[in-house]
Structures are given as C-alpha cells and as structure tokens.
Design a protein around this nucleic acid. Structure first.
Lengths: 161, 161
DNA sequence: GGGCAAATGTTGCATTTGAAACAGTTTTCG
DNA sequence: CGAAAACTGTTTCAAATGCAACATTTGCCC
C-alpha cells in the first residue's frame, strides 16, 4: 500500500501542516509555545480557573501544565496562587498583559486559520468539520474504558465527568 | 471564544488522539518511532529508494530521515549504501526482517485504525476523507510560494517537483 | 486522633528533538 | 582546469519532552 493512500498518515500530515501555519504566528511572532498558547486561550475565556477545571478543559498532562504555567508566570502573563480550600491545587488567572498579548496573537492566528479555511469550498469545509467531530466521537467510543488522557475534549453525556 | 469551539484546536487534538492510538501499537508492541514507521512503510511499498525519491515521498526533514535510518539499520531492518552515481546520496532498501516486522505491525495498526474509523457512520467517514483532502489542497494553495517542507504530500500538477 | 493510601504539582534525569554548523560531493562558471 | 557555490547527509549543542521519583496535602479507616 502506498503511504499516501493510508488515511491515518494523510490525517497526521495535514494536521501537522495546518498546526505549523499557526505556530508560525503565535510562536515566532509572540514567543508562545503550543502549551502556553492553549493555557492563555483557556484563561482569556474564563478569566480564572483552578487546576481541576483546567485539567478537564485542556488536553495537556500535569507536567505540561506545570511547565507552561511557570513560563507564563515568569513572563507575567498569568498569576498562580495556592488555593486555600485545597492547598494541593492552584488558581490560575490571566493578567492584563496576558490578555493584551493573547488578543493581539489571537487576531493574527485566527486570521491565518481563516485564510486557509476560506480557501476551501464551503461544502468541503462543512465536510471537514462534520468529519472531525465524528472522528472525535468515534475515538471516545472506542477508547471508552481507558483513561481519557488527552483523548478528546470534555463533552456532555454519560462519558467522562 | 471557548477553545473547544476553535476549529484548529479541535483538529489538532483529534489528530493527536488518533495518532496516539496507532503509536500505541507500532510503538509499544513493535518498538518503532513514528519516523521509523514511516520509512519502513515507504520501503515496504517501494522495496528500495534513493534519498531524492524518499525526500519527495515523505514529510520528514533530512535530519529525521538520517536518524531514523540509522536506527533501522542498527536493527537490521533496512540497509543503507552510498550511491555510486552520486556519492552524496544514499540508497535505502528494506531487508527481509524489515518486511516481516512491518507486515506484522501493519496488520495490527491497520486493524486498530479500521476499528476506529468503522465506529463512524459511513457518511461521516466520507465527509472526513473529503474534508481532509480539501484541507490539504487549501494549505498547499495558500502556502504555495514558500518551500513545501512537510507541508503536504507530493501531488501531480504544477506545484512541487 | 493517627497512620496509611490517594491525589496533586513539581523536580531530576535520560532521551528526543530542532536549528545550526559541519564534512564530503557535485555542479557551475570564469 | 579550478575555485567557488550549491547540494546532501551527518554531527553537535542547546532546548524540549516523557517518565518516574519526589514532596506536600488531603481523605479514609481503624
């Protein structure tokens, strides 16, 4: 079989290429790693989160979160405080500087993503979104028994939570 | 905006989760890295390739190829010889042991991939394939001027080659 | 209450990865 | 012909990553 015809290969290569287009923006132009980008994204939306909520809404493991958060704190883009109610947990909050940086980066990243997606015919774009959503459900279904570590994003329903 | 609604995030997370399911097979059970897996895949199909052909058909850069090939050679799964016609190039060939290992791994990896894909309704699966193909074309179109390093797979037409 | 298991975040260490420098070969052009 | 430029694969070095051990805190059970 030719590798170009193997669907998992095609999916991985295309997803990497798409991701690379966006990393080129928030990475090179704003100095953010993928994990830092995701944490800022979450915090810009939520304002503040404790680590339990964060673990549920991100597909990063605890080491990645800890390290990305350290760097974001060094850059003064977020703050991290020990939670009083349970001193094992942390409360993460985005700073004004973090909001500013994220919003500027998001404008450019979103524009780049749209530029690519809008180069697709609308029907193809709809097919892609439908297919991705369905694949996500299929993976969740097939891997149900195991721990969902980074398998997918939280969703309503009987699975997860 | 909620990160779960940001399409590039959804695509990246789903693609990683899918990939992880397959790496769990060829990685843990057959000791192959992603790059080694791809090289073996190509060579099992072609039998033997020189480095120029290889660079065209893989989405790996030269460093990744060099290192993966070294390991495969150590494991006696491929052979590497300097090409007489141009001593900068190498000829890669798969060994019998390499074929055997790859075929066994491919059976299991393909089965795992099918298990997931067949958990999708046929219409959704068709949508996914259509969408992925279209996204690949869109990325190639938008990034046309730059070097296509790992951007996509080779295709007929005016671009690349 | 007191000890033990579970949960959480962090750190250490070995491996992997990426970018640039490098060495060897070929091509170009004067 | 010969020097310089271009090309290819490998190596080097610093940074990133993954996994396991660790320290701290909490919940459990007697």
């Amino acid at each position: 079989m030719r590798i170009e015809a193997f669907f998992p290969y095609r999916l991985a290569v295309v997803a990497e290429a798409f991701s690379r287009q966006l990393v080129a923006v928030y990475g090179r132009e704003y100095g953010l790693s993928r994990e830092e980008w995701r944490l800022l994204f979450l915090l810009e939306d939520a304002g503040s989160l404790d680590s339990l909520q964060l673990a549920q809404r991100t597909s990063l493991d605890k080491v990645q979160v800890s390290r990305a958060a350290s760097r974001l704190e060094e850059k003064a883009l977020i703050t991290r405080t020990v939670l009083g109610s349970d001193r094992r947990l942390r409360n993460y909050a985005i700073t004004e500087a973090g909001r500013d940086l994220f919003r500027r980066a998001f404008d450019r990243v979103g524009a780049r993503a749209d530029e690519i997606l809008e180069a697709m015919p609308a029907r193809d774009r709809a097919a892609l979104e439908r297919g991705v959503a369905a694949l996500d459900r299929a993976i969740a279904r097939v891997t149900e028994p195991e721990t969902g570590h980074g398998t997918a994003f939280p969703r309503p329903g009987p699975i997860e939570d």
